[in-house]
């Protein structure tokens, strides 16, 4: 299945949309199409209904968290150094904003081909986390989009029933994000290291402050 051909076909038939082909460097060869949020539903409907494509089976909907990161680049600039203009190497840091990405894997039951991946990203990870829901197109996205809302925080507009799926309704965090910190559960390990050791040392020092002179484990 030629993804370039599919991309041109969709761009020809869905007015106004611009797709981006995201190459996949691994040996799996599963490249994907990135779409913007405005035309996502139209692209999805076309993928599902077009005669030669007929991607009627949305198999998997995944959320991925890309936190914001700084990318440093070495750039040559001309600067005045001790009165002489020279070419100096400078490290320029650009901040890439974080985003939450949603990936849909589509197959065709009728034509028995697939998969193709369709990707969408939010604008950032804080306030602008809205994406259009593809549940009206493929019913199988219903529970999976609810899970992405629960664990990542992406709000899907147009979803018939957007509530938390796995955590309880009063839970306020989005646990699968990379910056989520687990609550301190007083984990015990006989040979503690890293985070567990740090917390255990903290508990020990707190206990010693409360009950000074009390030796050993209770």
């Amino acid at each position: 299945m030629n993804l370039e051909a599919i991309k041109s076909e969709i761009e020809a038939n869905v007015p106004g949309c611009r797709l981006e082909l995201v190459a996949n460097p691994s040996p799996s060869g599963q490249h994907s199409l990135r779409t913007g949020a405005e035309h996502a539903v139209a692209v999805a409907v076309y993928l599902r209904d077009a005669e030669d494509l007929r991607f009627d089976f949305c198999s998997n909907v995944t959320g991925i968290d890309w936190p914001s990161r700084e990318v440093s680049q070495k750039v040559k600039v001309r600067k005045l150094v001790d009165g002489v203009e020279q070419e100096v190497e400078e490290v320029r840091k650009t901040a890439l904003p974080g985003t939450l990405e949603v990936v849909y894997h589509l197959f065709s039951v009728e034509k028995k081909h697939g998969p193709i991946s369709l990707r969408m990203s939010t604008i950032d990870r804080d306030a602008n986390v809205h994406l259009p829901s593809l549940t009206p197109v493929w019913r199988s996205a219903e529970l999976q989009e609810r899970e992405i809302f629960d664990l990542f925080g992406v709000v899907f507009d147009g979803h018939p029933d957007l509530r938390r799926l796995l955590m309880w309704p009063d839970f306020t965090d989005h646990p699968m994000r990379r910056d989520y910190v687990d609550p301190d559960d007083y984990e015990y390990e006989p040979t503690a290291h890293d985070e567990v050791l740090r917390r255990a040392q903290q508990h020990r020092s707190e206990a010693d402050e409360e009950h000074p002179g009390e030796a050993g484990e209770r």
């Binding site: 996949n24 460097p25 691994s26 040996p27 799996s28 599963q30 998997n60 894997h105």
Partner: peptide, 10 residues
Amino acid sequence: RPKPGEAYGR
């Protein structure tokens, strides 16, 4: 360490 990329296997 697999190279950067992604795969869906079923």
